[in-house]
């Protein structure tokens, strides 16, 4: 894993430069340290951007008590990958991209990034992205959840997500009748 540079070396890095660092150190609920580019963190997370701007970043590791180390590792990984995926030769590309689109389908690397996650890791990441105000990551992970539902029957969806059906038969019948326009004969 090329990502979590900061894990073991955070101690050293901290000594090197206290001010003007171009990274920030984040601390997971279980005390592990991760280093992430300040620029990427500020660009991708509204919460981290606010902390950086407000000077509430702790050089010894900013406590993120709500986020476990696995999820935080994924967050940091995502930020780094995102930073790298920005086409540096943007000027050279002659194709015109529509960056202002409200929702862009996940890119190939984003798809791969969420596809490799276990069920629990995906949900941990959704919660971390939500907590940190990472709009894009939240969209990409939520999109993955929707893909796990797409085209499946209610029974299949309940199985995938372990949802307990707490309706009575009568209630279900009532709903189907009330919303007949969405069910028809299936």
């Amino acid at each position: 894993m090329e990502v979590d540079k900061g894990k073991g070396e955070a101690e050293e890095t901290r000594k090197v430069a206290e001010a003007d660092r171009d990274t920030v150190t984040l601390k997971s609920s279980d005390g592990k340290l991760f280093e992430v580019s300040k620029e990427a963190a500020a660009r991708l997370s509204t919460v981290l951007a606010g902390m950086i701007a407000g000077g509430s970043i702790d050089d010894n590791g900013t406590d993120l008590k709500q986020i476990g180390s696995e999820a935080l590792e994924n967050v940091v990984d995502y930020c780094n990958k995102h930073a790298n995926s920005i086409p540096s030769a943007a000027l050279i590309s002659s194709s015109i991209s529509f960056n202002t689109a409200p929702f862009k389908e996940p890119e190939e690397w984003e798809r791969k990034f969420v596809d490799r996650l276990s069920h629990d890791a995906l949900f941990d990441l959704v919660e971390a992205a939500n907590f940190l105000g990472m709009e894009r990551l939240l969209d990409v992970t939520c999109h993955k959840i929707s893909e796990m539902m797409k085209g499946k029957s209610p029974d299949q969806i309940r199985e995938v997500f372990n949802i307990k059906n707490d309706y009575t038969k009568e209630e279900l019948e009532e709903i189907r009748q009330e919303l007949a326009w969405a069910f028809y004969d299936d």
Partner: peptide, 27 residues
């Protein structure tokens, strides 16, 4: 089901409309 409403809504709003409405029978 442990997700907050905002997040859950965000996830299911990627579904196409008919399947989206049909999620009402899940629980």
């Amino acid at each position: 089901n442990a997700l907050g409403n905002d997040v859950l809504l965000r996830a299911i709003s990627f579904l196409e409309a008919r399947q989206l409405v049909q999620t009402c029978v899940l629980s």
